[in-house]
Design a protein around this nucleic acid. Structure first.
Lengths: 248, 248
DNA sequence: CGATTAGTTGAGGAGACTCAAACATTGTGG
DNA sequence: CCACAATGTTTGAGTCTCCTCAACTAATCG
């Protein structure tokens, strides 16, 4: 049912809304995206380096995760990118890549040469502003996640992750009420929440047992008690929405 | 000795380097900063909200931390801001503040109205680029910290924090070789590393016992075995420097 | 010089980890 | 169409890290 929206097509909320409202700006941005658009199946992985970093990525559809890993094999997913997300994976020295990128689903994205990207921005101040807002939202949700990664129980970080992904998906029109398919394994959710896969499993089952969630068939989630979920996650729903949802 | 550099005056590396190299750009930026500059003692706190968020802060000297806290009293420091750092504490909706701000020392900063800030940027593309780089560096170091916050032992996150702060301070000319004064209590370091103050204490003592650090008198730190420190933190020193140090 | 704040140390407990084995689901080749 | 492999989830047992509580010491300051 809703897989379609996740993996294919441009969600209604994506290009039309939010990014450039004037007809000219809209055309420009969209043309640029279309010109450099690629489709890739779920399997591929990118370790960005060298000239690959001279590129700005704009996700049109599908889910990506950005992660870092340590020498001893641990991995932390630092952000989940949903359609409309921007990926500018270049560190301070403008040539070392910061993160590894992994698609969770089939993805469609635009790989725009940095030069073209910046030209487009300089010609379209309104888009610059929109993108600024998108970036702010990304930082805001990272802050929230750090809060729960550092302090906070397994329950609270998992509850937060699920609530965050549900909220963001809903804004993109990818949910069916309180139902949400998260295209991650428990291992990946663990890498996102700083937990072992085993503990993710136990925690999800506890949430299920307490009637907060329903989890079926590989992360097909239904939120049964949203108040309990936000309570466990330590979320003020209105404040969170204002912080992490790009609103112009 | 080096406290002077931490708390007062403009570190050599700050305004002159990095931010705007042409005489015109340099003048403009510096004038703006000077026009809106404030000094504040260590004690004050800001909870930014309302029109306060229509302001961009540029830290001239001193240390600040940005933190978030939960309803149940836990706090996570999401970043430490050193001289030259920019603080644009506005979330996606452009009016809710994301973070609380706390100075660790006496600070001198410029509180620039957003409008003026953006005008300055639009008139000085080179400064825009510099600031972009500063922001990237901030994100890169947050990614690194998230990796250790999620996975990683108390030793590794503390070792990382100390190494990071030493590296950044060194670039700003605020260290004396391997000596560094971190103006944080163990409680604050714990809030930064996602640990209790008690465990910070134990961990520091262990590092001391193993000859990695020397800790005297309220976080006056000397790194005795930098290789051991990077090993424990899981750091590749060259790569880290490239990622988190703004280099133009 | 007491009062406050920060750091140290011990004891005990809870939460999350690892290892390991069983089970479920999906996909594949014979 | 079945057997089997591969992948992911579930559950149990045991351990270790880190937390909390609490008492004590050290340093700082009016």
């Amino acid at each position: 049912m809703m897989q379609g929206a996740v993996c294919h097509g441009v969600p209604a909320a994506l290009l039309p809304t939010g990014v450039g409202r004037g007809p000219y700006a809209y055309q420009t941005f969209r043309d640029l995206i279309d010109a450099y658009r690629f489709d890739r199946p779920a399997g591929f992985t990118v370790k960005l380096e060298g000239e690959a970093t001279a590129t700005v990525y704009y996700l049109v559809s599908g889910w990506l995760v950005l992660s870092k890993s340590t020498a001893n094999g641990h991995r932390q997913i630092v952000d989940v990118v949903l359609p409309g997300g921007i990926l500018d994976p270049v560190s301070a020295d403008a040539c070392t890549s910061i993160v590894e990128i992994e698609p969770l689903t089939d993805v469609s994205f635009a790989a725009v040469p940095r030069e073209d990207w910046h030209r487009m921005l300089s010609e379209n101040p309104s888009i610059t502003r929109e993108i600024d807002i998108i970036n702010r939202a990304a930082i805001a949700r990272m802050f929230e996640r750090m809060l729960r990664l550092g302090k906070g129980s397994a329950e609270s970080i998992i509850a937060f992750a699920i609530y965050e992904l549900h909220l963001r998906s809903t804004v993109l029109g990818m949910t069916d009420g309180y139902r949400l398919r998260i295209p991650m394994t428990q291992q990946q959710l663990g890498d996102f929440c700083g937990l072992s896969a085993v503990h993710v499993c136990r925690t999800l089952r506890r949430l299920k047992r307490h009637g907060v969630l329903e989890v079926t068939d590989h992360m097909d989630i239904r939120i049964r008690d949203i108040d309990a979920l936000t309570e466990i996650a330590g979320i003020d729903p209105d404040a969170l929405r204002q912080e992490i949802i790009p609103a112009a």
